[in-house]
Amino acid sequence: MSTSKKNPLHIPSPFQAEEPGMTPEQKEQEYVHNVYQVIAPHFSATRYKPWPVVEEFLMNMPAGSVGADVGCGNGKYIGVNPSLFMIGSDRSSNLISICSERGHEAMVCDGLALPYRPQFFDFAISIAVIHHFITPERRINAIEEILRVVRVGAKVLIFVWALEQSGKRDFDKNVQDVFVPWAMPKKAEPKQSRDRTQSRAQGVRRNERSNVHQQPSTSLSSQSSSAAVTTAMTSLNEASSIDEPLDQLKMKSDQADKDQDQKVLTTHNLTFEEFASTRENAIQQTNVQNEQTQPSAKESEAAPVYNRYYHLFQKGELEELVVRTNKASIVQSGYDRDNWWCILEKTTS
């Protein structure tokens, strides 16, 4: 890939079915669920600014409407319009813990098997979720499952990542199924807990190919990033199945939020994944001065990188899936911040 200017840690690579024996469920477990579980605190710290299309959708809902946020992550959309009542769900219990700590109604569940009564909700959103399902059938099933739990006439907003995006990412326009790396900052993390991190992240593949050895000094500085994030990460991994009091985690991740805000005040208009890479740049600059004060930096390895599976949507592909459900019509659709989005209306039960 000809992206020499770009941070090599953020270059996507084609998704290869390395384990042909794996079911789609197993692949999603390994390349989506396990990854989010591990990167949850860092991921959450980079997710706080609502996208305008989503915000507008929520602000336009009649007061008192009841909505489901399917794949809500840290719940950043749940409190956007306080006149609504929203329930969030996500596969990642670590993300749901953060969401719940913020006072939001949240539960752990699978997007293909929502535990709600049929036709209950007045609206639903699913932001940056359906691109993580590995087959077209599962992507349709995910939309159908959302449509099952909303009433006839309800509106549903869906965002998925676009293949056509041009920006930080250079996607090969012929490859729709890709691994997208998530680089975890890893400063002062003690060696032993790093090992523990590794063992807890069962099945999570670190991208060993990903230029671990060709990272010069920038890699040293990029890994010595926000200590607060790393601490949150470490403590989460050390807590066996979330036994640590969550308010501690919350405080740490809030601190991480603030750290990041201060470092990258200018990144508010950035798109989905740009934040992380810009953040690294900022941190690299910050850390140039710090390097002498960190003698151990030379000994550290490169930042751990976790590969998430994405299906990148082509123009029109999301609408096609919606039409194939035979249960909804498309009200509006568009392109925003490297994503295709679509508002649909449930037409038949």
């Binding site: 539960m107 699978d110 098997a113």
Partner: peptide, 10 residues
């Protein structure tokens, strides 16, 4: 911790 786990086995 106030969070229902509605995940099912495969």
């Amino acid at each position: 911790d106030g969070i229902p786990n509605m995940l099912l086995a495969e």
